[in-house]
Deep mutational scan, measured.
Amino acid sequence: TEIRININGVTIHVRDASEELKKLIEHLLRLGADEKEIREVLHRWEK
């Protein structure tokens, strides 16, 4: 699944996002995570 996240005008594009990762990101956004925090989570997730 491919997702695009727009945070304050900055688009983060994620290829091959699992449903689990998608739910995690949606949850973090609801909690008010910023772009830097989302990128950090994505970076750690890929490892």
Rank of each mutant, 00 (worst) to 15 (best):
S18K: 05
W45I: 05
L24D: 04
H27V: 11
V14D: 01
E2T: 11
V14E: 02
E20Y: 12
I12K: 01
E19T: 10
E46L: 15
T1Q: 12
L29Y: 11
I38M: 04
K36V: 10
S18T: 10
L29F: 10
K22H: 10
I25R: 00
E40P: 00
L42Y: 01
R15T: 10
H13E: 07
R30D: 04
L21I: 06
D16T: 08
L21G: 00
I38D: 00
I12D: 01
K23F: 14
H43D: 06
H43M: 14
I7V: 12
L28H: 06
E40K: 13
W45V: 03
E26I: 15
G9S: 06
L24V: 13
T1P: 07
I38V: 06
L31G: 06
L21T: 02
N6T: 11
A33M: 05
E20F: 10
V41H: 05
G9H: 07
L31M: 15
L29D: 00
I38A: 00
E26N: 14
V14H: 04
D34C: 04
L21F: 07
L29Q: 03
I7A: 06
R4Y: 13
L31F: 09
G9W: 01
D34V: 05
E37K: 11
L21A: 02
V14L: 08
E37R: 12
N8A: 09
R30N: 05
H13W: 07
G32W: 03
A17W: 08
N8K: 07
I5P: 01
K47D: 14
G9V: 02
I12F: 03
A17G: 08
D16Y: 15
H27E: 08
G32N: 05
E26R: 15
R44M: 11
I7M: 09
R44K: 09
R39V: 05
E2K: 06
E46F: 15
E20H: 04
I7P: 02
E40A: 14
D16N: 14
D16R: 13
L24Y: 12
I38W: 03
K22F: 15
R15I: 10
W45S: 02
H27D: 06
K23E: 09
W45P: 01
E35M: 08
N8P: 02
R44L: 14
I12E: 01
L31N: 06
I38N: 00
E46G: 15
E26F: 15
K23W: 14
V10P: 02
K47T: 15
L42I: 13
E19A: 11
G32R: 08
E2L: 07
V41K: 03
E20R: 05
E37G: 07
I38T: 00
G32H: 05
L42K: 00
E35R: 02
K22P: 01
R15S: 08
L31T: 07
E40F: 11
H27Q: 12
V41S: 05
W45N: 02
E37C: 09
L28D: 00
V41Q: 09
K47I: 15
H43P: 00
E35Q: 07
K22Q: 11
N8V: 04
V41W: 15
E37S: 11
K23R: 11
S18L: 04
H43T: 11
V41C: 05
E2D: 13
R30L: 07
D34M: 07
D16W: 15
H27A: 14
E26Y: 15
E19Q: 10
R4H: 12
R15Q: 09
L42M: 05
K47L: 15
K22C: 03
E46N: 15
L21Q: 03
K22N: 06
E19M: 11
T11Y: 11
E20K: 08
D34L: 08
E46I: 15
T1D: 09
E37P: 00
H43Y: 14
E26P: 00
I5Y: 01
I12V: 06
E40R: 14
E20C: 07
W45H: 05
I25D: 00
H43G: 05
N6P: 06
I7L: 10
L31A: 09
E2N: 12
I7N: 03
K36I: 10
I3T: 04
E35W: 14
I5K: 01
E37V: 12
D16I: 06
W45K: 01
D34P: 08
R39A: 04
D34H: 07
R4G: 06
L24N: 06
N6E: 10
E40D: 08
S18Y: 03
I7Q: 04
V14W: 08
L42Q: 00
E37A: 13
E26K: 14
I38F: 06
R30G: 04
V14A: 03
T1G: 10
L31W: 09
I5R: 01
L31P: 00
E20Q: 08
D16S: 12
E2Q: 08
R39K: 07
N8G: 11
V14R: 01
E46S: 15
N6D: 09
I3N: 03
I25K: 00
L31Q: 07
I3R: 02
N8H: 09
V14Q: 03
V41G: 01
I3C: 04
